[in-house]
Design a protein around this nucleic acid. Structure first.
Lengths: 252, 252
DNA sequence: CGGCGTTTTGACAGGCTTCAAGGGCCGTGG
DNA sequence: CCACGGCCCTTGAAGCCTGTCAAAACGCCG
């Protein structure tokens, strides 16, 4: 639970220049919405890799939108066993649970240097009462989170190790692609095999061996944090089910 | 995907007399909210056990609140493997996903005769724009659903069979107790060991053997659909983590 | 060069799945 | 009244998938 060098930053990106507005799969704000969101964002936060900026069991004063970088949401059992719930990428909202309920049910840790928009939880109701379109967007985001958790649950509960590994890679690659992070079928994955095994509910050793088996099929390549998709169809077939993205999804 | 005898019913319970209003753990409506919810509920639906009233991949015209009975949400893979995501009890909302997104990501099947409130999805935005308190409640319910999925994910990903079985039983028993369905530490569970194994990501045979082992500890008793909690503390210790309920939670 | 985190491999044990079959309960029908 | 079929629970045996233990190779960086 090292909190690391989480620090507010004086220099913040104005929402008009938000890099996320250039991502094609995200919906556009109306001028009024943009105006409100500008006032809603009170600051920016930079987090170093390895630092948790939200912690299970605590109540956070803020919720966040990821502007840049990768993170992951996780829970740990008393004896140290860790389960990664999913990865969080730019345009994802984190900390909503802590904003509407008593406290956070999971922690969130940065995988890369992270830039976050800070949104004060005490003004969330203001958003709900004045901007129902944005409130609806937040519900949409929550439903999407639920969808991803459900798919993950099916993977862990009912898929073999090989299928699981194929499925996450397909899933994460697809999400990165939506956000324009893929170039020539290559994307930089910031997570280790340890992260992958904690996400898949497998041991590190077996994750490694399974990964090797997958690489042997020539469907993927993965060396030195660089991941390359060679044959998505094969991967899809191994996973037993495809990854479905979304267009015009909201972000805040 | 048998749809069974799902049929609208002429006789519906007025919201003022809603049995859920007597449940202590649920928050009370303001008079205005009650008035709106009364207009929002357009009908009631009765579903027979074994019938699915929401189906993965389809778009539903309605969302539902469970008035009475048990159901479960699930997904199936192409080859028939089934994963139960969680159980749904009275005061649970189902079908929200289909209401805010393109289509449902899972199916829902009745375990007992079921009574549902029908809420039209096309009027959901009306709720968001006119009753932000209710919109906030829906977000709360979505966050709660996410919380339960996360706990389930940890179970399946990182707990042993014995821990898993102990955890679900604790969890389901706790939920039933909140709703006043427990009497003298006994509650009628309407699901079979097959359901349990599909929820836990285990085989039926191993679920049975594990259950036997758990019963041997004298922490629980479970015969003929009657479940009795004999020693919650022991069960809790075996599960490795307790179940936490909620007071004054919303329902619609 | 030395140290550390990550990846890789091999050997072995065991938890869980699969296959197979029997028993109990209950509603149906002869 | 009893036979029968269907669903659910139960039990045993065998084998595989996955976990654990152990150690070495690799890459990166101070």
């Amino acid at each position: 639970m090292i909190l690391g060098n989480a620090r507010p930053n004086g220099h913040i990106t104005p929402c008009e220049e938000c890099p996320l507005r250039r991502v094609p799969c995200l919906r556009e704000f109306s001028p009024e919405e943009l105006e409100f969101v500008k006032r809603f964002k009170i600051d920016e936060l930079h987090v170093e890799p390895g630092a948790s900026f939200l912690t299970e069991g605590t109540r956070s004063e803020h919720l966040y939108t990821i502007l840049e970088g990768w993170a992951f949401r996780y829970k740990v059992l008393d004896d140290g066993r860790r389960q990664i719930l999913n990865f969080a990428l730019p345009a994802d909202m984190v900390g909503l649970q802590g904003a509407v309920m008593e406290e956070m049910e999971h922690s969130v840790e940065a995988l890369t240097p992270l830039t976050l928009c800070i949104l004060p939880r005490r003004r969330l109701y203001e958003l709900y009462s004045q901007y129902p379109t944005l409130a609806f967007d937040i519900t949409w985001l929550a439903a999407r989170e639920e969808k991803m958790l459900e798919e993950h649950l099916v993977s862990i509960g009912r898929r073999s190790a090989l299928e699981r590994v194929a499925y996450v890679l397909l899933h994460v690659y697809g999400r990165a692609k939506e956000l324009g992070m893929v170039r020539d079928n290559v994307v930089a994955f910031p997570f280790t095999q340890q992260h992958l095994s904690d996400a898949l509910g497998l041991s590190l050793v077996h994750t490694n061996k399974t990964l090797k088996r997958l690489i042997a099929t020539k469907a993927i390549r993965w060396q030195g944090r660089q991941f390359e998709m060679l044959n998505g169809a094969v991967l899809d077939q191994i996973a037993g089910s495809g990854y479905s993205g979304q267009k015009n999804r909201p972000f805040i």
